[in-house]
Design a binder for these strands. Structure first.
Length: 437
RNA sequence: GGAGGCGUCGCAUAGUGGUCUAGUGCGCACGCUUGGAAAGCGUGUGAACCGAAAGGUUCCGAGAGUUCGAAUCUCUCCGCCUCCGCCA
C-alpha cells in the first residue's frame, strides 16, 4: 500500500506506475473518495466532540435537568447514524481502491509488457562446452537414480518428486553452505566489500519459519492473490506459504523498531508450496516447476534510505553463492510488466541449464520499499523520534531444486556421471555421483 | 479434545457504567543537586487520523451489541497461560 498523501501529491506518477505495470485502478476516483472520507470524518468528529461535552454535563447534572440533557443526546445520536453509515461505505470503497494501487517501479526499471522486456545487466561464468550431447536433468536424474517423478506421480500426483541418494545429500549441502556463509559477519563483510557496497555487515539470523499462515496476514504481505496459486485450507482459514518470505516478512508486524536495531536480517529455510494453477502443460518434465520445493530465503528490514543498497547486497550474496558453485548465470532487471505489484525493483538471476540450452530463473530479489510495511504496520523510529515505515527486501538464497538442476546439468560428464562442485564435496562426501551398482 | 483463568500506554500493575482527556511503579529523557557519579527531588514520557495552528477525534486483543454515556455489561472471534487427555 502507498501513502495516500503521496498519491495525492503525485497522482501523475502513480497513474504512470499503474499503466506501466498494467494495473487497472482509478486514481481520480480514489482522490474523490478520499476527499469525501475527510469531509465525513470531520463532520462525525465535531459531532462526537459535542457528544463528549454533553456526556460530561449529564454526569454532573441531577433530576429534571439531567433528563432534559439525556433527551437532547438521544436526538443528537439519531442524527449521527446516517453519517456513520455513509462513512462506512466510503471507507470500504477507499480501502478497496487503495489496495489496488501498485508500488512505483524504480527509475532504473525498464518498461515492458512482459518477460521480453527484462534487461540483462551482466553475465558471469562460462557455459560448459560438452563434447557430447548434454542431458536434461530429468534424464540424468532417472539414469542415476536421483529423481523419481513416476513413483511420486502415483503417490502424490503430477509436479511432485522423490529426491534420492546423493541428490538428497546435496540438498542439505546447499542449505549448509548458505547458512554458514551468511550467518557469518566476516563473510557478509567480504561479500559487501567485493561488490563495492558500503553497507552494515550485520549477519543474518537463521530461522525455521512456519509454513502455514493466516490468510489475512498473507493478504497484508500482498501475496495472497491470486488465491488460485495458493493452497488454502478453508476449515482453518490457513494458507500454505509459497515462500519462507511469506512468514518472515510479518515477523515485525505491528511493531515500532528502534532505528539503531536496523538492519535486521533473516535467512529462513522452508518448504514452499505452489499450485501452479496457470502453468498447465508448462515445464512438466523433471523438477523445475513443482508443487512443493525447498528454499532458503533472505528477508531484511532497513532504513528507507538503505533500501536499494540492501537489495544490491542481497544480489551480491546470490552471485557469491553461484560463483562458489561455479554456475554460469545472468543477472536480469525485471521490467514493469513482469514484476509483481508490491515490487519497487525486482532483480532475477537466471542460471544456464545446458541440458535445456537456456537460462532459467533460479533467484529473485524483491525490493518493496515501504509498500509491504505499510500494510503490515511495521515501523521504524529514529533518534529524533520520527516514525516512518521500514523498508523491506526479500531474496532467494537458494531455490534448492532449481540449483540442484543447474548443478546436475552443468556438472554432467560424458559417462553419465555428475561431478560434485568442489565446495560441496566435504558435505556430500564424494567427488563423483555415479550410477549405483 | 475436556475444564478453568487471562488479554489495559516499552515492562509490571490499578481500574466492575459518567470526575478515565486511563492512575501508580519500573524503565527512559531532560533539569536541579554534585568535583564527578549514584541516590534524592522536579518535569516530561504511546500511536493513528483531520487541521496552517489552536485544537479535535479515535485506540484499553479484534469485531458486533446494550446504553444518553463502555476499559468496565452482553455476544462472537483471536491470542496467551494452567490442569487433564492425546501425541512427533
Amino acid at each position: 500500500m502507498l501513502d495516500i498523501h503521496f498519491i495525492r501529491e503525485n497522482a501523475d506518477i502513480v497513474k504512470e506506475a499503474a499503466r506501466k505495470k498494467g494495473v487497472e485502478v482509478d486514481i481520480d476516483r480514489l482522490l474523490v473518495v478520499y476527499e469525501e472520507r475527510k469531509k465525513l470524518e470531520q463532520e462525525l468528529e465535531s459531532r462526537r466532540a459535542e457528544q463528549n461535552r454533553a456526556s460530561k454535563t449529564i454526569a454532573l447534572a441531577k433530576g429534571a435537568e439531567r433528563d432534559k440533557h439525556i433527551e437532547a443526546m438521544q436526538h443528537l445520536k439519531a442524527g449521527m447514524a446516517e453519517s456513520e453509515e455513509k462513512y462506512k461505505k466510503v471507507m470500504e470503497e477507499w480501502e478497496k481502491l487503495m489496495l489496488a494501487v501498485p508500488n512505483i517501479p524504480s527509475p532504473d526499471t525498464p518498461e515492458g509488457p512482459d518477460e521480453s522486456g527484462n534487461k540483462v545487466l551482466r553475465q558471469w561464468g562460462e557455459k560448459p562446452a560438452f563434447p557430447f550431447a548434454a542431458k536434461a536433468h530429468w534424464d540424468l536424474g532417472k539414469d542415476l537414480g536421483l529423481i523419481d517423478t513416476e513413483k511420486a506421480g502415483e503417490i502424490s500426483g503430477a509436479r511432485f518428486s522423490y529426491l534420492l541418494g546423493d541428490l538428497a545429500l546435496m540438498q542439505f549441502a546447499l542449505i549448509d553452505l548458505v547458512m554458514k556463509t551468511i550467518t557469518s559477519r566476516d563473510m557478509v563483510a567480504r561479500i559487501a566489500e567485493k561488490a563495492g557496497l558500503a553497507v552494515d555487515t550485520k549477519p543474518f539470523i537463521p530461522v525455521i519459519p512456519p509454513v502455514m499462515m493466516r490468510a489475512d496476514v498473507m493478504g497484508r504481505m500482498a501475496r495472497l492473490h491470486p488465491i488460485d496459486e495458493r493452497y488454502y485450507f478453508e476449515k482453518d482459514d490457513l494458507v500454505l506459504v509459497g515462500s519462507a518470505e511469506h512468514t518472515l516478512g510479518p515477523l515485525h508486524m505491528n511493531e515500532i523498531i528502534e532505528e539503531a536495531k536496523l538492519p535486521i536480517r533473516y535467512v529462513g529455510y522452508s518448504t514452499a508450496f505452489r499450485r501452479e494453477a496457470g502453468a498447465a502443460g508448462k515445464d512438466t518434465r523433471g523438477i523445475l516447476r513443482q508443487h512443493q520445493f525447498d528454499k532458503v530465503e533472505m528477508e531484511t528490514f532497513v532504513r528507507p534510505e538503505d533500501g536499494y543498497r540492501e537489495q544490491d547486497l542481497l544480489v551480491a550474496i546470490q552471485e557469491h553463492l553461484m560463483q562458489a558453485l561455479t554456475l554460469p548465470y545472468e543477472v536480469v532487471i525485471v521490467c514493469t510488466g513482469d514484476m509483481s505489484k508490491p515490487d519497487q525493483r525486482q532483480i532475477d538471476i537466471n542460471t544456464w541449464m545446458p541440458g535445456q540450452g537456456v537460462y532459467r530463473e533460479t533467484h529473485s530479489s524483491d525490493y518493496m520499499g515501504g509498500f509491504q510495511a505499510r500494510r503490515l504496520n511495521t515501523r521504524v523510529k529514529n533518534a529524533a523520534g520520527e516514525i516512518t515505515h521500514v523498508h523491506m527486501n526479500d531474496a532467494t538464497a537458494f531455490a534448492v531444486g532449481r540449483t540442484l538442476i543447474a548443478i546436475m546439468e552443468n556438472y554432467q560428464q560424458e559417462d553419465g556421471s555428475i561431478r560434485v562442485p568442489d565446495v560441496l564435496v566435504p558435505y556430500v562426501g564424494k567427488e563423483i555421483i555415479r550410477r549405483p551398482a
